[in-house]
Design a protein around this nucleic acid. Structure first.
Length: 428
RNA sequence: GCGGCCGUAGCUCAAUGGUAGAGCUCCAGAUUGUGAUUCUGGCUGUUGCGGGUUCGAGCCCCGUCGGUCGCCCCA
């Protein structure tokens, strides 16, 4: 009984699956994703692997708020960071931001209650994080990021443990040392060199920038940026250098059986601000994707952010690049969503008996569905059952009233009459 | 914030400046108790949007929005 004056937006006609476009589409915002069931299953499969491996390494899960004070990030990265994140003023005039990373939150939480926890802490989280920048390949405005951190342990064995976890996460997806490589570097090595060569601290930023870009820029440009240090630095980038810290980490990885998974590479400096020791990134061997994951030691961050002097390190792994890589290598986790039973109602006079059976199956833990629409043709119901990935169809007919049903194997198409009782537990 | 490329049906794509189409998907029927194939029918567009040129624009021009790739930046 439509009166005709309703806006098209509010008219719902279930018989029409598609119709004239009567109002503008509302796609998700730039850089944000919808997760339809298939994508959601894929995302959850990734989460499941992440959780499984992290807990296997003795890490425990935590989380923080998705919204934090803007100051928390500015304190760590400078005021200009605001231009790169989602920030706004809330109704209480507070300057807030959607979290661009979890590490400041972690530092805040640990500083707040560090006395409550035995050291070292091995914590992981799977936050959705946000950044305000133009989307590009492997980089959106939101993504989910596995974060694994070890706090309160200064030894290099902690660095190795963290990197080993990252390697094992990648292995758990079916990737091998043929697919990826950890590029290991030592930020402290560069700092030592800068001090030894009397480079003033205000020039360090440009120095790290030059190293970071040396792969993507012509050598002449890098030389120009490095000035008098050019020969020495380019030699180190090309041929490596001595580092007792890297020796220790590499030894630990090798005895764990990961000798083929890493290479020493001093071009990795990981951003600019807070890393203090070992830093590393994982890349796919073909180089067609940006970094899969990366991390390092940040021993000063907790002191600077929360006033608690505690060594710390960690890594982050996003779902976007990882998902692209797994898809390209045919290693995307299987996401088939199936049913144990689909109850097809062949005879509407037994619908109530069929619903009783559906409920019993569900109570018994069986994934069970049925055709809600009354009077759906049996053929259509079986088609649905098959499309939904059900292993068996149960054809509910008059025999159901005497405790029997037709059980049909949807793969073999074989069908037999069975007592209903046998469906509740015995038959899988 | 800057630049390259691309925007046609839900999806993948056609259409010399001259009446906007196909395949797939979806829904239904052939088939009122049996799903893979097959056949038939149905739904579907302000050609992203707004201007301009032209007798006439999906096509050419300008702008804008969106997508994508890169730059900047990288947590």
């Amino acid at each position: 009984m439509r009166t005709g004056h309703l806006l098209p937006l509010f008219v719902f006609n279930p018989r029409k699956t598609s119709g004239p476009l009567t109002y503008p589409r509302m796609p998700p915002l730039t850089g944000f994703r919808d997760f339809y069931p298939e994508e959601c299953a894929g995302r959850n499969a990734i989460f499941s692997v992440w959780r499984s491996v992290a807990t296997r390494y003795g890490f425990v899960e935590y989380d923080g708020p998705p919204l934090e004070s803007l100051e928390l990030y500015q304190k760590k990265s400078g005021a200009e960071i605001a231009s790169q994140l989602y920030n706004f003023t809330d109704k209480g005039e507070r300057h807030v931001a959607l979290r661009p990373e979890l590490t400041p939150t972690l530092a805040r939480m640990v500083a707040e209650r560090h006395r409550d926890f035995k050291k070292p802490l091995k914590w992981f989280a799977i936050p959705q994080v946000f950044r305000y920048e133009r989307p590009q390949k492997g980089r959106l405005r939101e993504h989910y990021q596995l974060n694994c951190d070890i706090l309160g342990e200064p030894s290099l064995e902690a660095d190795a443990e963290n990197i080993a976890l990252a390697i094992d996460v990648l292995r758990a997806f079916g990737l091998t040392s043929d697919d990826f490589v950890i590029r290991l570097s030592d930020r402290q090595f560069w700092v030592d060199l800068l001090i030894a060569r009397n480079v003033p601290q205000e020039k360090w930023y440009d120095f790290f920038q030059a190293i970071d870009k040396s792969e993507r820029e012509p050598e002449e440009k890098t030389r120009e940026k490095l000035g008098p240090l050019a020969d020495e630095v380019l030699g180190i980038l090309a041929n490596g250098a001595e580092s007792a810290r890297l020796d220790a980490v590499e030894r630990s990885l090798t005895v764990r059986g990961f000798g083929a998974c890493y290479k020493r590479d001093f071009t990795i400096v990981r951003g600019l601000a807070y890393y203090t020791g070992i830093v590393w990134e994982a890349f796919d061997r073909t180089g067609q994707f940006r970094a899969i994951c990366g991390g390092g030691r940040y021993d000063d961050l907790l002191k600077n952010l929360g006033g608690v002097d505690m060594p710390a390190l960690g890594f982050g792994m996003g779902d976007v690049v990882l998902g692209e890589l797994l898809k390209a290598r045919g290693k995307a986790p299987a996401t088939a969503q199936t049913l144990d039973y689909f109850v097809a109602i062949a005879d509407e006079t037994v619908r109530e008996n069929a619903m009783e059976l559906v409920q019993k199956l569900r109570d018994a833990g069986k994934r069970t569905d049925f055709a809600i629409a009354i009077g759906t043709k049996l053929g259509k119901q079986l088609e649905t059952a098959s499309a939904r990935g059900a292993r068996h169809a149960i054809v509910a007919d008059a025999k159901l009233k005497s405790g029997e049903a037709e059980l049909k194997d949807l793969q073999t198409r074989e069908q037999r009459t069975v007592p209903v009782a046998s469906l509740l537990g015995v038959v899988a």
